[in-house]
Design a protein around this nucleic acid. Sequence first.
DNA 1: TTGTATGCGTTATCAA
DNA 2: TTGATAACGCATACAA
Lengths: 338, 338
Amino acid sequence: MEDIAQSAGVALSTVSRALNNDTRISLATRKRIQKIAKEMGFKKNILASGLMTNRTNIIGVVIPQINRAFFSSIIYSMEETANQMGFSLIICQSADSYLREKEKVETLLALNVDGIVTSIAVDSKDMSHFERARELGTPVLFFDRIPKVAFPVSTILIEDAESAYQGTVHLIKQGYTKIAHLAGPTELHIFAERLEGYKKALTEYNLPICDEYIRYHKIMSHEEGRDSTEALLHLKNPPNAIFCANNLMAISAVFHAIDQGYRVPEDLGIIGFSEEPSSALMRPGISSIKQPSIEMGKMAIEMIIKEITAQSQKESFDHLEVILPTQINIRQSSLKKG
Amino acid sequence: MEDIAQSAGVALSTVSRALNNDTRISLATRKRIQKIAKEMGFKKNILASGLMTNRTNIIGVVIPQINRAFFSSIIYSMEETANQMGFSLIICQSADSYLREKEKVETLLALNVDGIVTSIAVDSKDMSHFERARELGTPVLFFDRIPKVAFPVSTILIEDAESAYQGTVHLIKQGYTKIAHLAGPTELHIFAERLEGYKKALTEYNLPICDEYIRYHKIMSHEEGRDSTEALLHLKNPPNAIFCANNLMAISAVFHAIDQGYRVPEDLGIIGFSEEPSSALMRPGISSIKQPSIEMGKMAIEMIIKEITAQSQKESFDHLEVILPTQINIRQSSLKKG
DNA sequence: TTGTATGCGTTATCAA
DNA sequence: TTGATAACGCATACAA
């Protein structure tokens, strides 16, 4: 910057102001200085700038694991949105560990990120790390996996209970009478909700809620899905449909059943929650409740930036609790009636 | 830090040294200061620190698009590795646009990242932005999609040509005689290599290289794969096997062919390059050449950190050109002989 | 082993 | 409208 000042014959502070488009500097010199800066290939040091302004234009993102279709789609959308708005993203994985989540949040705060957007770990014991962020004046936003306890920040969710209800009702209406559920870890709000939606549908249609039809999973991996499907099919009174709390388990269930000689959807109807890119491509196509991951990512970044902006201008900001609708994509795997 | 200094009754600089574990400070006071710092919940401002040290412990990653199985798996592995080594990752998408890639690199440099790890965009015209990084002393590493022109940085590749050759030979040995190729954009080194490997196999086994059997794609999306498969199957002399340069097109090809009444693998054998998580789960299982994405991500981060470390200690560093082996996973989609 | 003083690159304050 | 200078939070050369 000093070189520019010399070259333009002005003071350092003038250069700074000109580059920040400060209207107090005459348009003429502003343009002139900006031109020189460009010629000299000047790029301002955001660290130094951030030291004074307390703004880095970096948003920290903490998610359990990036290489899952839902999260990678969210991150895709977040980065696209952040890019458009002039922000960068530091992305961290908690690996579903409370301790690591906590460390990551500390690191993000040490890096002076402008805000933190997160989907919490399964075993997050308390929210002290996020409270600390708020104390330091760093906005926090939760999406998808939000804390069960109320917390004064914005949240973005989908209609988990309602969607699970709809998915189960769909199975019932297709004529399936014995419906099992591959559940996620119900410590997490979203999976508890999905379980509730499933139960509500059964109750409403006078079907019994049968404990051995409900299986809980921690990782919700292919292996877990396969093993649970195996177990269900070996019951004395096996189910004829399965509602899965994620999509990977649904895929496992479909193809494990087929491998065992069952016909899908005739003998066993299956619907999953959330989609893989290939869900629609494979045969049978996997029915699923599609989460609006693109919208969710976009909205999360837009909301946190709004809060960041409000905060740096010392305006008040009302936290929002957004609930996004899902879309139920019925494919062959649950179409008994065709 | 000043508060700590007061509380400990020492000078600011002593605190700084103690927190950095400088051995010139006696172990006793070091421990004492560190304890006080922890009690006071002190976290050093990495921005301010980076201003002096020129180290941020942030690595910039620029990839075309994050929500693709290969890249999200790489990023997963990179973040895991970076986390272990005390680094954070800023992740940017180029969306396969030269301009955006260039802007992103500029931003990363303005943020004083310690290094840049990247897989270049399809239409990257020149490498001036990466040259600039090098001029500024910021190490650069290319993986997977590397520039065609030589560039004095480390690179990590897989055996593209050899793997494509092996995949094609596999099809030939299964008894397929008319083998098509769904190619990627050959502006990119890796896809040019895959095409060459395919051609080499045909030549070696005295099969003709037939222009209408080779189809080029830019996005390599599901739609492109489906349309190309459709076109191939409508040829007067249609192929009886397809080697695909990515996996999404392979999945599209398999299920489009099945939908059209072809039997896979009997009528049409298909093998893809790179895997989706569900490749092994679906029926037929999709044969594919598995890229070692986890190893690649790990190695990329380890190598760039080595270079960063060498650089900050002003040691010399020899750039490496690593080539990783692939693994060919034969599944039902290409097993004509069973 | 510790303290003092200065610098990193930028923005903000105050004066001109 | 511009300039001089302090300040941001930390690290380091030099002095003690």
